[in-house]
Simulated assay, not measured.
Amino acid sequence: MATNSTLKNQLANKQETSAQQVSANSLGLKSLLNTPTMQKKFDQVLEKKAPQFMASLLNLYNGDPSLQAAEPMSIVSSAMVAASLDLPIDKNLGYAWIVPFYDKNKGHKAAQFQLGYKGYIQLALRTGQYKAINVIEVREGELKKWNRLTEELELDLEGTSSDKVIGYCGYFRLVNGFEKTVYWTKDEVEAHRIKHNKMKDKKALNNVWKSDYDAMAMKTVLRNMLGKWGILSIEMQKAISEDEREVKDITDDASEEEPEKIIDVEYTETDPEPKKKKDKESAQDVMDMSFD
């Protein structure tokens, strides 16, 4: 039979536990990354490269006001995808991007992972099956002949008459000798973009399409070519799946907001910021979301 003293102790312990648990999304990104759970997850994936990667994530966050408005947990989950593929997230490098999108139904911004065309090339080269792989813009005056059936392509890269981009060309050659060439006109790329645009205004440019149209166009051509004719490793299949899944998940028709993840932190009277709680992880671990 429980005594009054026992009940008081249980109530006190429950209140203490509740005080130590805060919503992950209520923490700033820096505080979130400093939690033992997050550090452990990134260490498991990146080992010695984890501190450098997490520092680059903070640099990206601090330099992008639009990203700062996104849910911290969505930023971390997007970064974890890039980490699992061992790709840098510096947007100037073009391997992978963490892009904020506004979710109208949820009323806030959420970040999503997007793979760049250089990321696709990097993952392809890691398979050891590609002897050569590339994708380029084709400018006005450079295209001499293109046969869609035989895939005979004739370019004169010295014949550029203007900087206007009229199309995009992708090419790869496998170590076994098989090769593939594809050419998309800019109109074909634009039609593909509009078809898959999740915005209400289908013709509107958003995010990377707005800031670097050619990079996204080359990615589209490369991904389509590799998906149809390339050799895809498990890592490449995962990358393509993540790239496509994230884009589909964040739309104006998003489902109800997920319950906030909980993470253990500890407060002190002298420190307004949450401090790391040693050797304890909440049963409602913030990383339960699907990083494993």
Rank of each mutant, 00 (worst) to 15 (best):
R126Y: 07
K248V: 02
K131C: 00
L205D: 13
G128Y: 08
T127A: 04
L149Y: 07
I240G: 03
R193M: 15
H196V: 13
I166D: 10
L143K: 07
R223K: 12
E246G: 02
M216W: 08
L174I: 04
L149E: 12
L174C: 04
M218R: 09
K200W: 10
I136Q: 10
S211F: 07
M216Q: 09
K144C: 06
N147M: 06
L153H: 06
R126H: 12
S162C: 12
F172S: 05
C169F: 08
T181N: 03
D214C: 08
V165E: 10
K219R: 09
L205N: 12
D163T: 14
D212N: 11
T160N: 15
A132M: 11
V138W: 03
G170W: 01
K228S: 10
R173Y: 03
K248F: 00
G227V: 00
V247T: 06
K203A: 14
E179F: 04
E190W: 12
L174K: 05
K200S: 13
Y168Q: 04
V221S: 05
E246V: 00
I166L: 14
C169P: 01
V175H: 08
K195T: 15
T150C: 00
V182D: 08
N197F: 07
R148A: 13
K195W: 15
Y183K: 05
N197V: 03
D187P: 04
F172I: 04
S161G: 10
C169W: 05
K210M: 12
G128W: 05
Y168V: 01
N206A: 14
I166R: 11
V165H: 09
S162A: 14
Q237D: 11
K195I: 14
K238E: 11
L123I: 08
K210C: 01
A191R: 15
I136R: 07
S162Q: 13
M199E: 15
T220K: 02
A191G: 12
T150K: 13
I194K: 15
L226M: 08
I133V: 13
R139D: 04
Y130D: 07
Q129I: 08
L143T: 10
K186W: 03
V175P: 02
K164Q: 14
D201P: 01
N206C: 09
T160P: 05
L232K: 12
A204M: 15
Q237N: 14
L222G: 01
I250K: 08
S241R: 11
L205Q: 13
S241H: 07
K202Y: 13
M236P: 03
V175E: 10
K195C: 12
I240M: 10
A191K: 15
K210A: 14
E152D: 14
R139S: 11
L205P: 06
M218A: 02
E190P: 02
E140Y: 10
F178D: 11
R245C: 02
E188V: 03
L153E: 06
Y171W: 05
T181D: 01
A204L: 15
D156M: 07
L125F: 08
D212T: 07
K248T: 00
A215Q: 05
D214S: 11
I194S: 14
D163V: 06
G227A: 09
E137L: 02
A132S: 12
E142N: 10
S161Y: 13
T185L: 06
L157A: 14
W146M: 06
